[in-house]
Design a protein around this nucleic acid. Structure first.
Lengths: 214, 214
DNA sequence: TGATTTTTGTACCATATCGCAAAATAATCC
DNA sequence: GGATTATTTTGCGATATGGTACAAAAATCA
């Protein structure tokens, strides 16, 4: 039930008043996210979360609110992380094909990571469970889905402007296909389809979207 | 707690010995499937199932086994139904585009049906939840995924033979894109994306896969 | 009619679950 | 050192959960 031995004494924080926390909120949230990603909301108990985070239930409650709030915060954290790794890829200038390859490689790294096996995409997992019954969560999922669509759309628009794609190419349609490929490998990864096979799917999809590599 | 008033006296059955069942296994399984599809395994309690099926728990247990077995049987039932509606579309001869349109229309009907709102694809829902932790269920999901891949692949192969697709077309890659589109609309439907929008995604995907309609 | 068989309905058990109250602990402030 | 503040720890309580035992019920069989 102990998370760390020595607090890194965050230099910026002025001076906390009462008993010092025995956990770091960030790493605790990360552990919670890990659990939720693999097991989902309903199948994850507060005891599970307590054990994984190293915080007992009242502390968990105090820090993050109830189970649902913790789930939401975990999901937000996931989105931030995912967005960060995507933005990095979008910043640099490179050919479409290469950009797509990098995006999918990053996605696969996220989806296949996990000590107990691959866990897929948390947006997809959440869509498949809580999204139907919880309007607030559903709104977040929708946002996550459309964010990806938009990123791909801008990617294809840029490519078209640079002449990498024929005039007939429809960036919006290509973007939704690119997103669909992401959703598909997310699903398949949870069924333990091998990385090799997933990479094959990605390659085939890219070939159809931007033309077979010369 | 009563499911029907009059048993339809199934003409084929010879003569059952003891007290007659107060439920029809088929409709009960259908109700269980409905619940599992919307809520998932963990979030569905035996009480929920008992109420929905009109059977009390001991009867449920006697008829289908424990909760997990009931889930598995529900999933098998779902797959049989889905397969039946696909086979019908594959039997008739028609242009690829039309065949694809029909397949996606059938899929959307399944995904968007439901009294309390859209429920998506049960294979996808199961992949996103139980598949990671339960090898037997995972195997069934894998089979469901690859069955769809194969159906699409044969669809594109036929189209290529008939000259509807260019020689350069790769049926396997196209099939995986077609499957990906199915997965994607399944996910999106659970986030309550409108039917209109989903149909737009489908149209865009078909255009990319078999060429824009002349 | 009475024995037999199958299913239902009630009640129950052991455990898990979520959430919280209250006391103990460890730091700072004065 | 004592007051204050923030956090941990222990433990509880109300309910939900999956599963089952057992008697009552409803049919057939002889």
């Amino acid at each position: 039930m102990v998370q760390k031995s020595k607090p890194p004494a965050a230099a910026n924080e002025p001076k906390r008043r009462g008993r010092p926390r025995a956990y770091e909120p960030d790493v605790a949230l990360g552990k919670a996210l890990d659990l939720f990603r693999t097991q989902g909301f309903a199948a994850t108990s507060l005891d599970d979360l307590s054990e994984a985070t190293g915080m007992n239930r009242p502390s968990l409650y105090g820090a993050f609110g109830d189970k649902r709030e913790l789930y939401i915060k975990s999901y937000q954290r996931y989105r931030e992380d995912a967005r960060a790794s995507m933005i990095a890829i979008f910043r640099q200038e490179m050919p479409v094909r290469q950009r797509l390859e990098r995006i999918y490689a990053a996605a696969l790294n996220i989806y296949l990571s996990g000590e107990t096996g691959p866990r897929g995409c948390f947006t997809v997992v959440t869509a498949a469970s809580e999204a139907v019954g919880d309007p607030e969560i559903r709104a977040m999922v929708l946002e996550g889905l459309s964010e990806l669509d938009k990123a791909f759309a801008s990617c294809f628009r840029r490519a078209k402007e640079k002449g990498e794609l024929p005039d007939s190419a429809d960036p919006a349609a290509l973007a939704q296909l690119a997103s669909a490929t992401v959703h598909s490998i997310a699903i398949r990864s949870r069924a333990r389809v091998s990385r090799k096979e997933l990479e094959g799917i990605v390659k085939g999809a890219i070939d159809v979207m931007v033309g077979v590599k010369p």
